[in-house]
């Protein structure tokens, strides 16, 4: 699993060297950001059901999508938010890449699922994050970065 620390170790191992000062500085930098990331992860974990419900309401409000798909859409939004929670902990996009993005285009295309619905949902969540009501500014930035990353990957 790719994370901030394992990425550094993988590179050092590929070069066959001990962790040098620049490796250790990279690890330290990720630890320095960890507090904000963990706050975002914690707030997301406690509010994931509300966030999912809100985004779902927004996506289905204008009747563009078949209401019969609602439950499955809720499940998928929840799934992606959970992966974002993991990414916030790991300090890397590894969990999203490995469990949520690899193969997703093929799946959506084969099953005829409109990706625009997900993009609308995650954009809505991104716009709705409120500082400081929901979380600190730095935590919100970490969260929004990952939402943007996911939106770009689905686009």
């Amino acid at each position: 699993m790719k994370s901030a620390v394992t990425t550094v170790i993988t590179a050092a191992d590929a070069a066959g060297r001990f962790p040098d000062i620049s490796d250790l500085k990279a690890v330290k930098a990720s630890f320095d950001r960890a507090a904000a990331r963990m706050e975002a992860a914690e707030k997301l974990a406690s509010g994931i059901d509300n966030v999912t419900a809100d985004a779902l309401k927004a996506v289905y409000s204008d009747g563009k999508y078949d209401i019969a798909t609602r439950d499955k859409c809720a499940r998928d939004i929840n799934h992606y938010l959970r992966l974002i929670n993991y990414c916030l902990i790991a300090g890397s996009t590894g969990p999203l890449d490995e469990w949520g993005i690899a193969g997703v285009r093929e799946v959506f295309r084969t099953l005829g699922i409109p990706t625009s619905a997900y993009i609308e949902a995650f954009s809505y969540i991104r716009e709705r994050v409120c500082v400081p009501r929901d979380m600190d500014e730095q935590a919100a930035n970490e969260f929004k970065d990952l939402l943007n990353y996911l939106i770009n990957a689905l686009s």
């Binding site: 699993m1 994370s3 901030a4 620390v5 974990a45 994931i48 938010l81 902990i89 790991a90 590894g94």
Partner: peptide
Amino acid sequence: FSRAVVGADAKGACLG
């Protein structure tokens, strides 16, 4: 960190 993530994923739960 990723050890915690893999453990949570096996349960399908967020890390709270």
